[in-house]
């Protein structure tokens, strides 16, 4: 009788000790390099400047623009509703919380693609979801939307639609339908509301 209980007691202690000495797991989820590679070669992470502009004008609530340029550049001109996150503070705790917000498409952009690509890779490695890159960055945005690119050849209907859309967008964002000079420093910066991830609702009262 006594022996049976001794064995049970030892079993319990071993089970509890097991918990203590089990190696602590890395709290942060990391994407498997192979999965990361297959994600990195896909083009689906890119959004064109037209797509992004469209969503800005529509006031898409799922859109979250993240401006990776320097603060002074951001001050001079920024897309409406964008957040300025310098690359060096990309992985700070608050920003990670920001990135892990569910139901938001996080669109990264810098002056060109390079910074955004690097930031995308880092975010994806931390298993953050719905991270996109605005293809071409702010330079591309300016050349496409602000200083309109001439459409070569005989324009198709789709091309014409695009041209008129860009014109409308210019109207909307900069206030002039004409091809503006790059000095058009317009900031329609809105106060961006940061929605912190609400703690998951636990089940109601106990006894």
């Amino acid at each position: 009788m006594e022996r049976k209980y001794t064995i049970l007691a030892i079993l319990l202690i071993v089970l509890a000790l097991g918990l203590v000495i089990l190696p602590k797991k890395n709290e942060l989820k990391e994407t498997d390099p192979k999965v990361l590679l297959s994600e990195a070669v896909q083009k689906s992470r890119y959004l064109t400047v037209d797509q992004v502009t469209h969503r800005i004008i529509e006031n898409d609530p799922t859109l979250m623009l993240i401006d990776l340029r320097k603060a002074d550049q951001y001050k001079t001109f920024a897309l409406p509703g964008s957040l300025n996150i310098p690359p060096d503070s990309l992985l700070s705790k608050t920003n990670m919380e920001l990135f892990s917000q569910p139901g938001k498409d996080k669109v990264l952009y810098g002056n060109a693609d390079l910074t955004a690509e690097k930031a995308w890779l880092l975010c994806s490695r931390y298993a953050l979801k719905r991270i996109y890159i605005m293809k071409g960055g702010m330079n591309e945005w300016f050349t496409t939307i602000v200083s309109e690119k001439p459409v070569s050849g005989t324009p198709s209907t789709a091309d014409l639609d695009l041209v008129s859309f860009r014109k409308a967008a210019r109207m909307f964002l900069i206030g002039t339908g004409e091809t503006a000079s790059t000095s058009a420093a317009v900031t329609v910066k809105e106060k961006v509301q940061v929605i912190r991830k609400a703690p998951k609702a636990a089940a109601g009262g106990g006894c």
Partner: peptide, 25 residues
């Protein structure tokens, strides 16, 4: 109490239980 605690901690370790969804008095 011990059985339930050990079970929950082991399941939490294996990633099967998310402590933040449990009701903690």
């Amino acid at each position: 109490a011990i059985v339930a605690s050990l079970g929950l901690l082991y399941f939490s370790y294996l990633g099967l239980v998310d402590f933040s969804t449990l009701y903690i008095q």
